[in-house]
Design a protein around this nucleic acid. Sequence first.
RNA 1: GCCCCCGUGGUGGAAUGGUAGACACCGGAGACUUAAAAUCUCCUGACCUUUUGGUCGUGCCGGUUCGAGUCCGGCCGGGGGCACCA
Length: 919
Amino acid sequence: MSSYAPSEIEPKWQAAWADAGTFVSERDESRPKYYVLEMFPYPSGRLHIGHVRNYTMGDVVARYKMSTGHNVLHPMGWDAFGMPAENAAMATGGHPSDYTYNNIAEMKTQMKPLGWSLDWSREFATCDPAYYGQQQALFLDFLEKGLVYRKNAVVNWDPVDMTVLANEQVEDGKGWRSGAEVERRELTQWFFKISDHSEELLEALDGLDNWPAKVKLMQANWIGKSRGLQFSFSLIDGPAGHDRVEVYTTRPDTLLGASFVGISPDHPLAKQLEADNPDVAAFCADVRKGGTTEEALEKAEKRGFDTGLRVRHPFDTAAELPVYIANFILMDYGTGAIFGCPAHDQRDLDFAKKYDLPIKVALKPVGAIEIDPKIREHQEYIRDFKLNPSEKSHWAFGDEDSGEIEFIWIKDHALSFGSYAPIKPSKIPQMNELMLKIRSQIGIYKASEGFEYPGFSAIRYPATVSEAISDAITFCEENGVGHGVTKFRLRDWGLSRQRYWGCPIPVVHCDACGVVPEKKENLPIELPYDVSFDVPGNPLDRHPTWRDCACPSCGAAARRETDTMDTFVDSSWYFARFTAPGATTPTSAEDAAYWMNVDQYIGGIEHAILHLLYSRFFARAMHMTGHLPETAKEPFDALFTQGMVTHAIYTTKNPQDGRPVYHYPEEVELRDGKAYLKEAGTEVTVIPSAKMSKSKNNVVDPTRIVAEFGADTARWFVLSDSPPERDVEWTAAGAEAAHKHLGRVWRIASDIAQDTSPASDADEALLKEMHRAIRDVTGGIDSFGFNAAIAKLYAFTNALSKSKAGSAAKRTAAMTLAQLMAPMTPHLAEEIWALLGGEGLVIDAPWPQVDEAMLVDATVTLPIQVNGKRKAEIVVAADASKDEIEALALSQDAVQRMLDGGAPKKIIVVPGRIVNIVI
RNA sequence: GCCCCCGUGGUGGAAUGGUAGACACCGGAGACUUAAAAUCUCCUGACCUUUUGGUCGUGCCGGUUCGAGUCCGGCCGGGGGCACCA
């Protein structure tokens, strides 16, 4: 007998599907459509095992939906613009276009052997002029609708290379090539007005029932709706044109604790002072060093410059507050100016300590806990006591000598005060209990003595912080201090990139007419091929002729925009383009109406915010400009975010310099639970579950796996070992086990094909097992529980292998097994289907149906618990009454022993589940 | 720094609030074989116990419940994102 030979059967069935045109989708109004999409790849040229997992998950869904009568759209393309191609051109002298298209060809040859049910007839790359030309048309329509505009924005500027850097090109605040300290510099840039849609993008999240809750939460946090107070401090003797400082605060209830005002270095007042005062200019230049990321700004040491200017407190006109220029205030958020309340904000506290500013306590609890008046005298002890050094959110303040604690501070809940026992490590448990007690009372607070404004504290006995905020806004409005406003953290989407390998922005700069949109008939505005990458900066800027053009408005000589689009633009509508990839407009109405929305979208959690939010915005903008129907405003009906494929790293230390040396898995052998180098015998340190990285030599190459074991093994393994949303660790042993199992299935099926045994009384048990398998596998696929579905397939295979059933029942069971495996291991399934005489292709066969009658058992096993601990087990008829169950449960030896002659207090019988006896 | 997620045997993991460890890997024992490979069968959370059986056990500390891996509060540890990587 021959053996399982994937290298023979896989190409055979791939050819069969291709000949039958199985995966080419066409509109068919008579069948329900199903659009399954995996996030398309960047063409790195190297298929990664992570791609294999991502596309196999989509393939399982696609093939399953084909078997349930759906007209499935499952396309593939390339997210082909971006920096790696330019970096490669700079490093090796090639051209980004050649690099990209070669990579696409290479990756496609690596993808085909995996047997995914992709409709390659719809393939495109975002760097195809046919695609980006339509993107330019969309841009022009958006521009006309007022969805795009220009404004200044900050970029990372490398002063040596004279070029803009991406965040990933900034390392420790320095340019990756030049090593020069990066500066934040303003440039005029194009923006999409996504912020106009903040409210709607936030509210519509509620309707996305089949999105992971965590993605929705991340997006909601990103959009960052907040209610606060906007008001102005009047400036004392400010420079001309600056008589007040407008601030926005989400904590107006702490206004009485204000001790300084901070403005962004990019604030108009700061810029005025910068022009007038060299010291200010020096400070501003200094804080502009470093990258633009929020992380870099947050982590940077908080620094300020005392401008010498003073403002008046709106409620205490005798109090004057200093105005600082501070490096942690963003011009993009709120008004670019804040007031600092050190008593109730950690960052403000750090700042106040550093610049010796007053710390005014504005809030305190009222109620059971008495306030110790010594508190204010002991402010110098702030942070001198920690209840637990690792608990950053809890602070205790007090008298070091006596050990008396006067109050504690619980993060996010303003200040809480108390007077209680001395602190000693042994007392910490009691302290925690006390803190919990205080927690239950916090929020009932008022302004503390000494910082009151008549009328302000009187109104403030709200139950929660949010009520306090809302009361404070009302109070301020009534007293003519500012007004309540709603703000969003979401900023407009800057799409300009000063780079070559992207979609050119189709506008023209004319001396007479200004910024003029290109005419649609001139699209696509194609990238010139003859460019060089030997010097940094944008080759489009340096090109001798490309910029030259005629003004679309007046016809005079003009210059093209040389900025290209952010690659997120490319990926914000490709899903719509797949519905009509050849259309001469961005979309076609019939195709969009039929195929949209994406029924199931699958991709990495790393795209949870930006890509998905931008796509949601784009779908709305495309609807506003007539390119998508109203129903496609939320383009992804269901979203699934899958985990990474990880692999152990094998490392030893270089004896000379102690640096790590990374070894390929093939160089390592495992013995007695330890790892050794095969040649030298040196013991190797194993770092499990690490992200794959070329430099760490732990990348798994799918092409090699397919060559060694076949595509079905690779597909089976990436689905089998972990829940899809979690990371899976690739192990050689796991891959071999998967391969062995598929070989076993093949052998079992071959044996059954030869079997002629008559029907037996084991038939029913096997068929019952089969129906349970149908139920569980179907449920597993429906709920993205692929690993659970595969576990069930293992169990069913074991049952089939051991069954003494006759050949007819076994054949039925094996053919059903083939069908249930077909979404995961389609080649093997086709082979078995054909071997056992199945009609046509298994992919065309209707999905097996569960016979409910076959799922019912006559008896049921119930565990018996005593006080929640399992003590015995009883077998009862499925329809046994509660009384019968109770009686039988109580008669168990183990139960009698526990009862020791007494009577149970209570018996809980959960039918079909469990019995719990309370004694 | 801010936001989000995760934590169960030697390993990956399973478990509508209801028998923790399904299924698989590793390991062990056996069958087959001249032998090996392949294959097949059985065992495999820890501790105590001759068997029977018992105790403990889902990162840590508490809480809710007849019953908690699951729900709640507080931590600890690991990972992802933070707007020019895609």
